[in-house]
Design a protein around this nucleic acid. Structure first.
Length: 671
DNA sequence: TCGTCCGGCGTTTTT
DNA sequence: CGCCGGACGA
């Protein structure tokens, strides 16, 4: 049995405010998710609101799953509200309504790989002696899309800088890209949101429909919403103002991805009659950790003032270790982890957080040497692997023949003698008579007697038929068998070990398909399965499988640490040029977001926070002098500095013991 | 079509 | 310093 009485005073106010706009400013560790889930449960159980009328939006699948799980526990078997990510919700809407925007229902979702391929074409067509970086163009385009600036509007917008070559290239590519995407009947991640906005604008009756469907809307991590998401929320609440947003402006760290902190800072002004509730009681950290975090973040001017406090014990002062260099830094962190382990601390309660992935290698080395098992969060997603992308592309091309990117991808994979020459020929043909590449294949392959191509078309037809007969899992197996994909891999990777890795990836995909068939939330069609894979993030698969790796240490960037907590946190590289990062300093940008990043790191720690900084660091093959981060200067009384380049932090006996240990280690090595 | 060599670059990345 | 991507050659 759950009761709102289990919440603190402020949390209860938040949970009991059901109607009208509500802004919950939830400090780090203030029981945000708890408040939100209790609020939802109480809406269903106590206010008798139909769960179908409640929508909770998150940014990550993991957060969505977690929230759903917790609400379910509170509701015990009763139907629970829809909890999904912005992207999943909008994709669901587009699948119903995209015809209103002139797309076909079988549209393909392009990921960054596909976008890059298309952008390569665009840049090749943009004749210029200067070369442009595809990724840069792509991210510039994405930020335009996130600001709702169309290719037509770009040149006359404030974002167009006439003295910058890139802007001209971007203008051309943005046009090219958008035209092709439309022709291919494809949409990208930004479009999932952007087209939903367009849909709501051009067809207000659709916005009305969904607004009436979802009478109550909740948004998690509101500080990270971008203008598109804000606009979608306006559509979703157009018939009512029952919107509850939860967030912490001090933890807004995704500006580079288009998040606009103004959304949360301005919420009260945009939604009239907003009730504001501040959650400042922290249930996570010691008072000493909170004191430091409060001091650090206070330096930011544009923020909703909050001061975290706790009933928890005072704890020790956070420590700042000064180390010789990056290797030494990793070494003493690993040593301390061993000591913590000896004291009975579980590795899963310890994390190493860093600003940049470039900081990882010394830590991996030292952890391995100390025999400490660890996992690195982040990195490649399942669908980012070439093999998975190939299989996805097969499904894409048979569901949407207009999708040229996927078609070109699978054309000669596995190798079947259709090279660049053939492709060029048909691209010309398709240009000449204004037909899609696939249509041109069908029209001329037989006439031209391109045997390999004819065989491919037969394969395509066969797969098409089978895709309608078989479920996701059976189809995947058929596809792999029919294309001799495993044999292709064996030819490609000579080493047995490599082949094994790829096989495992494919098996993961197949078992994921099997699980998808068993779930009940989404109709288990092949297309839906692959859309879900594309929307999945790097940790989803493991999460879905319940594959939480046991007792291992966690390494991750500060960005990925948001929302998590650990008893012991090592915040490494607390140096100028990491925090704030060199690039931010160089661009003369506002460093407040960097400070927030630091703040996020500090507030992850429950029991003790270790910060480390090097006096010198090897970067790009050169030894560079380093200085402590400006974020720590000025309030030295909130943390304790230890010079770890000497033995001064040890008592005499400890120092003696250390030297003896060192000597015997040395002897062991010499043996 | 594949392999090799050179040059440029090196922050974060919820979908 | 080391990686990745593009160019170019066999």
């Amino acid at each position: 049995m759950f009761s709102l009485e289990d919440l603190n005073q402020k949390q209860q106010i938040a949970a009991r405010t059901i109607n009208g706009p509500l802004l919950i400013l939830a400090g780090a560790g203030s029981g945000k998710t708890r408040t939100l889930t209790y609020r939802m449960a109480s809406m269903v159980k106590e206010h008798r609101i139909d769960p179908k009328a409640i929508l909770a939006l998150t940014f990550t699948n993991k957060a969505a799953l977690e929230m759903k799980k917790r609400v379910r526990q509170l509701l015990k078997g009763r139907k629970s509200p829809q909890t999904s990510t912005f992207h999943a919700l909008c994709l669901q809407i587009l699948k119903e309504e995209i015809h209103l925007l002139g797309y076909q229902k079988n549209f393909t979702l392009y990921d960054q790989n596909d976008q890059m391929s298309l952008m390569r074409d665009a840049l090749n067509n943009f004749k210029s002696q200067k070369t442009f970086d595809r990724g840069t163009i792509l991210s510039m385009m994405s930020s335009l899309k996130n600001k709702l600036i169309s290719p037509e509007q770009y040149a006359s917008s404030e974002h167009f800088d006439e003295s910058n070559d890139y802007c001209y290239a971007l203008e051309y590519c943005y046009y090219f890209y958008s035209e092709k995407m439309r022709y291919f009947n494809a949409i990208d991640f930004d479009d999932i949101l952007g087209l939903t906005v367009q849909l709501f604008e051009k067809h207000p009756e659709v916005a009305t429909k969904y607004s009436q469907k979802f009478e109550y809307v909740l948004v998690d991590e509101y500080q990270d919403t971008n203008p598109l998401q804000f606009s979608i929320l306006q559509g979703l609440t157009s018939t009512h103002n029952n919107i509850c947003v939860v967030g912490d402006d001090d933890q807004s760290i995704y500006k580079f991805r288009g998040a606009d902190i103004e959304n949360i800072l301005n919420f009260e002004n945009l939604y009239e009659g907003t009730k504001v509730v501040k959650l400042e009681e922290n249930y996570r950290s010691t008072q000493n950790i909170l004191n430091l975090s409060n001091e650090v973040i206070k330096k930011n001017t544009k923020r909703k003032a909050k001061t975290l406090w706790t009933h928890n014990e005072k704890g020790e002062l956070p420590s700042l270790w000064e180390t010789l260099d990056d290797v030494h830094e990793a070494q003493i962190v690993a040593d301390e982890v061993v000591k913590l382990q000896e004291r009975g601390v579980a590795l899963s309660d310890i994390a190493i957080l860093y600003r940049s992935n470039t900081q990882i290698p010394p830590f991996e080395d030292q952890l391995r040497m100390s025999l400490i098992p660890y996992k690195i969060i982040g990195g490649k997603k399942l669908y980012d692997r070439k093999e998975i992308k190939d299989l996805i592309a097969y499904v894409a091309t048979i569901t949407n023949p207009l999708d040229e990117i996927s078609l070109r991808r699978v054309l000669n994979v596995p190798t079947r003698g259709i090279g660049n020459k053939t492709l060029e020929k048909y691209l010309e043909i398709s240009k000449g008579n204004n037909k899609s590449l696939f249509a041109s294949f069908n029209m001329f392959a037989y006439e031209q007697e391109d045997k390999h191509l004819i065989k491919f078309l037969e394969l395509w037809q066969d797969l098409k038929v089978k895709s309608q007969e078989l479920g996701p899992k059976a189809f995947m197996e058929y596809l792999i068998e029919k294309t001799q994909y495993i044999e292709f891999i064996k030819r490609f990777y000579k080493e047995e070990k490599q082949v094994e890795i790829r096989k495992n990836l494919i098996n993961t995909l197949i078992s994921s398909a099997e699980r998808f068939e068993q779930q009940k939330e989404i109709t288990p069609t092949l297309k839906n399965f692959f859309d879900k894979i594309l929307l999945a993030d790097s940790q989803d698969i493991a999460y879905e499988k319940g594959e939480e790796q046991g007792n291992v240490l966690t390494l991750m960037t500060l960005h990925s640490s948001k929302g998590l907590e650990f008893d012991y946190v090592f915040l490494v590289g607390t140096e100028e040029e990491f925090l704030p990062h060199k690039r931010t300093i160089k661009m003369g940008e506002d460093i407040s977001e960097e400070r927030r990043l630091f703040y996020v790191g500090i507030t992850r720690a429950r029991k003790h926070l270790y910060m480390t900084r090097c006096k010198q660091r090897r970067l790009y093959g050169k030894d560079v002098k380093r200085h402590v981060t400006r974020f720590l200067t000025g309030f030295e009384e909130y943390y304790s500095i230890q010079d770890r380049t000497t033995l001064n932090h040890l008592s005499e006996e400890e120092a003696e013991a250390y030297k003896t240990q060192l000597f015997s280690d040395l002897m062991n090595i010499l043996d």
